[in-house]
Simulated scan of single mutants.
Amino acid sequence: MRISVPTIPLLSTRLPAPHRSIEEAVERVADFLFPGNVAILTGAGVSVDSGIRAYRGSDGRYMNPNYKPLFYHQLMDESEAGHAFRQRYWLRSYLGYPTIRDALPNPTHFALAALQHAHVAPRLITQNVDGLHHRALNLSPGTKNENILELHGSLHHVHCKHGHVVDRTTFQNWLSAANPQWRAFADETERTGNKPRTNPDGDVAIESLGTAYSTFIVPQCPTCLLEDRINSVHKPEVIFFGESIPQPVKERSFRDVEDADRLFVIGTTLATYSAFRLLKRAVELGKPALLLNVGPSRGDGIEEIERIDMASGLVIRDVVKAVLGTTASEDPVVARMLQSGTVKSIDDDAEPAEAPK
């Protein structure tokens, strides 16, 4: 089986998106959204202002040149090799998850939530697994709103190979209890601020661990133990490379696009086909599509797509105010949303110098 990491064309035959000032971009996006019944498709770019690093930079290339994602078949392999892959994954995830857990919605999340609340954009599809769109609607981590479809799942739940589900905070505590030396290591990196770079999926960019992965213990599923089974094969409820999106989620994503009158794509390169095919579907149906993103995307070759090359955080709050008019100040929920949002810069994280013995 040959599975490759998705890429996007770095050189497009299509001309760059026309330059627009912030004011021009606000006006154009507002005009696009104003008729309502919009479906929104989001990617990692909308969470950058929450302090979560995107996979790619403005040139479309992976910002971590050593990025080597774990594939689904590797994670679920029950051989010794699979056990080693799970040690690698869960150690890196253990170190990276607190960044995702502690992240707060930024102004873009709240602005899009305001569009949902006002029924301008009743359907939102996200490729992100951080849960921040839900939190912008005043929901706690792991709690889901039925009008938000997480195309690639959520980091906030974990299930074992027999289907026993646990919330990620509980699982994180299991990992801490099983690995006191790594808990101390994580506490030290937190204290010193010398934390490794965290990717949008909670994985960390930390290549210096070497053989230290072999010291990490992945705990047994306690429910399986009660059923007289020994099982340490766990998986977060996210879609891995090489794993198929569940059919109900796939069907729902197409239905959300088909039921909308237009599609607004924001903060994504559309590198994954699961997202790109939704844009293609909108175009096939003759629905207007607008892409707001920094840098190249997989959609650049589709002439029907209108593009604005700009970070969402620069314009989206003013866009929503323009679309909603007096509602933006008179509706207390919308007014609160448009005054909310934490912007956190992404530190130039460095790898910790030495793994625990």
Results as ranks from 00 to 15, higher is better:
Val218Met: 03
Pro332Lys: 06
Pro219Phe: 02
Pro6Val: 07
His164Ser: 03
Asn66Gln: 12
His152Glu: 02
Thr211Gln: 10
Ala282Trp: 00
Thr198Tyr: 00
Val120Ser: 02
Gly163Ser: 11
Trp174Cys: 06
Asn145Pro: 00
Gly313Gln: 06
Gly299Pro: 04
Leu132Asn: 10
Glu23Val: 12
Asp261Glu: 15
Arg317Glu: 14
Gln220Leu: 09
Gly96Pro: 04
Val238Pro: 02
Phe240Thr: 10
Leu292Pro: 08
Gly36Glu: 13
Met1His: 13
Arg88Asn: 07
Ser79Pro: 06
Thr7Val: 14
Val5Ala: 13
Gln127His: 03
Ser345Pro: 00
Pro288Thr: 12
Thr211Gly: 05
Ala271Ile: 03
Ile125Leu: 10
His234Met: 10
Gly82Asn: 02
Ile245Tyr: 00
Ser12Met: 03
Tyr67Leu: 12
Val238Leu: 04
Ser345Arg: 08
Ser253Tyr: 02
His119Ile: 01
Met1Val: 13
Ile100Met: 10
Ser340Gly: 10
Thr143Phe: 05
Ile230Lys: 11
Ser312Lys: 01
Asn66Asp: 15
Glu354Arg: 08
Arg229Glu: 14
Val334Thr: 13
Arg86Pro: 06
Asp349Asn: 15
Leu137Trp: 01
Ser58Ala: 15
Pro248Phe: 01
Ala311Leu: 02
Leu10Ser: 12
Leu15His: 12
Ser253Thr: 03
Arg317Tyr: 00
Gly57Trp: 09
Gln127Met: 06
Ile206Pro: 00
His83Phe: 06
Ala17Thr: 13
Tyr67Trp: 11
Val5Asp: 07
Thr269His: 05
Asn128Cys: 05
Ser58Trp: 07
Ile245Gly: 01
Phe185Ser: 08
Arg262Glu: 08
Leu115Trp: 04
Ile100Leu: 15
Ile217Leu: 04
Thr192Gly: 05
Cys160His: 11
Leu139Gly: 04
Val38Met: 05
Val166Trp: 03
Arg28Phe: 09
Asn138Met: 11
Gln74Leu: 01
Asp309Leu: 04
Val165Lys: 12
Arg88Ser: 07
Phe240Glu: 09
Ala322Trp: 00
Val29Glu: 03
Leu70Val: 14
Asn173Arg: 11
Ser47Asp: 09
Arg298His: 14
Thr342Cys: 05
Asp300Gln: 09
Ala335Thr: 05
Gly45Cys: 08
Asn293Tyr: 03
Leu112Cys: 07
Thr7His: 09
Pro107Asn: 09
Pro98Ser: 07
Met310Arg: 13
Ala184Tyr: 00
Pro236Ser: 11
Ser253Val: 06
Lys287Ala: 04
Leu149Gln: 12
Gly60Gln: 10
Phe185Trp: 05
Arg307Gln: 09
Pro105Val: 02
Thr342Val: 15
Ser93Arg: 10
Val204Ile: 14
Glu237Asn: 14
Val129Ile: 14
Glu80Gly: 12
Asn293Ala: 14
Gln181Gly: 01
Ile3Phe: 10
Leu338Glu: 05
Ala260Thr: 10
Pro9Leu: 09
Leu41Val: 10
Leu314Met: 14
Arg2Val: 14
Asp167Met: 04
Asn293Leu: 00
Gly57Thr: 14
Asn231Ala: 00
Met337Val: 08
Ser214Gln: 08
Asp187Gln: 13
Asp256Cys: 09
Gln87Ile: 00
Phe254Val: 09
Pro288Tyr: 06
Ile8Ser: 11
